[in-house]
């Protein structure tokens, strides 16, 4: 089923905060067109892994390649240019800046003529952002900020979208909305998605494949639906 050349290949990745190692050799891969979910509890290393992939957290060992190229030494902005966009944990929108300025910053590295078209596409996905595009982003609600953060990441025209806990702090109805948007992006715009979630049920429901991470190591992997049905996953992360 899988093509032989993955879009993102993580092999034996290690990363440490000072002397404390948070990732003890993580290997996984994401193929073009997939939605891959990484689920796990607090402190399992989910966010660290995502930050290491985007380059804002240094890696101490292992390999990282994207679209067939070794990116383990590339700077974060070079990785954005290569096609990786991260929606960071806690959204990290630029609160004092106007919503549209936030979105334009997502296209910071682009010089092409299609930025306006992509801006229109983001407004089409998130109409509420268009209504308030001149207002400071800090005035948005939590769910709207999450949409803005996703929109900002999309403005770089990523091949791979990294999402860190998109459901964090959102009401259940908004969680459904956000996950529906992620599915749409994958289906309609062909964006490959790698998302990290504590909300294992929501994440695995939309995922093609999933990984379970425990204390800095991959504990299980499989199809999203298989993991959802797995007794160990159900007990540990779904509370049933």
């Amino acid at each position: 089923m899988r093509s032989t050349d993955p879009l993102l290949e993580v092999s034996g990745l290690r990363s440490a905060y000072g002397r404390i190692e948070a990732l003890h050799g993580v290997s996984l891969q994401v193929d073009a067109g997939e939605i891959v979910a990484l689920v796990g509890g607090n402190g399992a290393g989910k966010t660290t892994l995502l930050r290491t992939i985007s380059g804002v957290q240094p890696m101490s060992g292992g390999g990282l390649s994207f679209a067939g190229r070794d990116i383990s030494r590339a700077s974060p902005h070079a990785r954005v240019a290569a096609g990786i966009a991260q929606v960071p944990e806690g959204r990290q929108i630029f609160a004092p800046l106007a919503i549209e300025d936030n979105l334009r910053l997502g296209a910071y590295l682009r010089k092409d003529a299609e930025i306006a078209a992509d801006l229109a596409r983001v407004y089409d996905l998130f109409p509420v952002l268009k209504e308030r595009r001149k207002n400071p982003a800090g005035g948005l609600s939590g769910g709207q900020q999450q949409m803005l953060a996703i929109g900002r990441a999309l403005m770089s025209r990523p091949k791979l979208l990294l999402l860190d806990e998109p459901s964090m702090g959102l009401a259940p109805v908004l969680v459904d909305q956000v996950f529906e948007i992620i599915t749409r992006l994958n289906r309609e715009d062909g964006v490959t998605v790698f998302l990290v979630e504590q909300n294992a049920f929501a994440a695995l429901s939309i995922a093609t494949r999933g990984y379970v991470i425990e204390t800095g190591e991959i504990a299980m992997e499989g199809k999203g639906s298989d993991l959802l049905a797995d007794d160990r996953v159900r007990e540990a992360y779904l509370g049933v």
């Binding site: 985007s54 630029f94 910053l105 997502g106």
Partner: peptide, 23 residues
């Protein structure tokens, strides 16, 4: 200019500025 926007962005959050592609 875009440079000015980048400056205000890194003022607010350096991590977010980095993952938006700002050096």
């Amino acid at each position: 200019s875009p440079t000015g926007r980048a400056l205000r962005a890194l003022h607010d959050s350096e991590v977010a500025a980095r993952v938006a592609g700002i050096d």
